[in-house]
Design a protein around this nucleic acid. Structure first.
Lengths: 194, 194
DNA sequence: GTCTATAAGATGATAGAC
DNA sequence: GTCTATCATCTTATAGAC
C-alpha cells in the first residue's frame, strides 16, 4: 500500500490556500509559494499563468470543498439546530488548522484590490453558503426548531457574517473561544427568539 | 473668517486612513499615499519614519475618534436599544463614505502580517468597543430593554463581530442593505430573546 | 517540468541638497 | 519641509535552455 504522490499542482494550491488564509492575497508572493513547495517562482507559472488565475482556481476549489462539507452535514444531520452547530464547527476547524481564516472572508476584505475573476468566485462562495443556510432556517422555522423574526435569507446572511467576523477577532486575540462563543450565542438566540 | 489650513500631517493621515480602509495595509504604498497629498514618497518619511509607525498612529487616531463618537452616543441617547442602533449607524456611515470598511476589521484580517505595534492598537480598538457595548448590554438587561442569554460581554463580542462581518459582505456585494439588515436582525433578536 | 536569466517596475527607506 | 538621487530588495511575468 503506497500513498499516492501529491501532484505539484495540488501542492501549490494547498500551500497557496494556507498563505492566503493566513496572510492574504496581497501579502504573499510566487516566491513564498514556490519556496514552500520546493521549486522556483518561475515554475509556478507553468501551472498558473498569473497570480489572478491562481487566486481564482484557489477560491473555486475552496468553494467546492466547502460545498461538499455542507452536503455531508445535510446527509448526516437532520436537526436544523444541530446543522447550524456543525456549520460553526467547520469554521472552528479552519481556525484550529494553523490560525486560518475562511478564505472567503479574507478575500472579501481584500475585495477592492482583487481582479474581477476572483471577485466573482468570492461572491459565489457567499451565495452557496447563504443558500444552504437559508434552507436550514426555512426548515427550522417549519419544524419550530428555530425561531427568528424576518426572512430566513436575512437570518442566514447575518449568521454567516457573524461567524466570519468572530473568526477574525478570534485569531487576532489568539482565542478560539471567541468563535465558539459567538456560535453558541447565535444558536441560543435562535432557539428562543419570537 | 478663514478656514484653518489642514496640516500636511493630517492630510497624510486622512489619505492613509482611506487607503487602508478600502485597500488594506498591505495594498497601499508610500507612493500612493504621497500622490494623493501632492508630495513625494520620500517626504512622507519626514512625518512618519516608517510604514509601521504610520499604521500605528493611524489606528490610534481612529480609535480615539471612534471612542469620541461612542461617548457622544452615551451622552445623547439613553435607551440601550437605541444606543445599539446608533452604534450600527456608525458602521453604516463608514461604509457609505466611499465603501470603507472599519479600520479595525481590515487590520484584524491582515493581523498575521502586521508589526507588533499595530497589532497592539487593533486589540485596543476591540477592547474599547467591546467595553462600551458590554455596558450597554448590562444596562439593557437591568432595565429589561434587552433580553439575551449568557454574559453581557459575550453578547457584546458577538454583536461587534457580526457587524464587522456584515460590513465586509455588504461592500463585496455593493449593497449597504446587507449591513442595515444584519443590524436590524441583531437588535430584533435582542428585543425578544429569553 | 523545472531551471536560469532577465525584464520592467514597485517597495520601504536613507542621504544630502535646497 | 520638500526635493532628487539612490539603494537593495521584491514583485509578476516571459524567454529559452535542459
Amino acid at each position: 500500500m503506497t500513498a499516492a504522490p501529491v501532484p505539484t499542482r495540488e501542492k501549490l494550491l494547498d500551500a497557496a490556500e494556507e498563505l492566503v488564509q493566513t496572510r492574504g492575497y496581497n501579502a504573499f508572493s510566487f516566491r513564498d509559494l514556490a519556496k514552500r513547495v520546493g521549486i522556483r517562482a518561475a515554475s509556478v507559472h507553468h501551472y498558473f499563468p498569473s497570480k489572478a488565475d491562481l487566486g481564482r482556481r484557489l477560491m473555486d476549489r475552496y468553494r467546492r470543498k466547502f460545498g461538499a462539507a455542507l452536503e455531508s452535514i445535510t446527509g448526516k444531520v437532520r436537526d436544523p439546530r444541530r446543522r447550524l452547530e456543525r456549520f460553526v464547527g467547520l469554521f472552528r476547524d479552519t481556525l484550529r488548522r494553523g490560525d486560518r481564516l475562511c478564505l472567503c472572508g479574507m478575500l472579501a476584505t481584500e475585495y477592492a484590490t482583487l481582479p474581477a475573476r476572483i471577485r466573482t468566485e468570492v461572491r459565489r462562495f457567499y451565495g452557496d453558503s447563504e443558500t444552504w443556510l437559508t434552507e436550514v432556517f426555512n426548515e427550522g422555522r417549519r419544524s419550530k426548531r428555530l425561531r427568528f423574526a424576518g426572512k430566513p435569507a436575512a437570518a442566514a446572511r447575518t449568521f454567516f457574517g457573524a461567524l466570519e467576523g468572530a473568526m477574525i477577532a478570534a485569531r487576532a486575540f489568539g482565542d478560539e473561544r471567541r468563535l465558539a462563543s459567538a456560535g453558541q450565542w447565535l444558536v441560543q438566540a435562535l432557539k428562543t427568539t419570537a
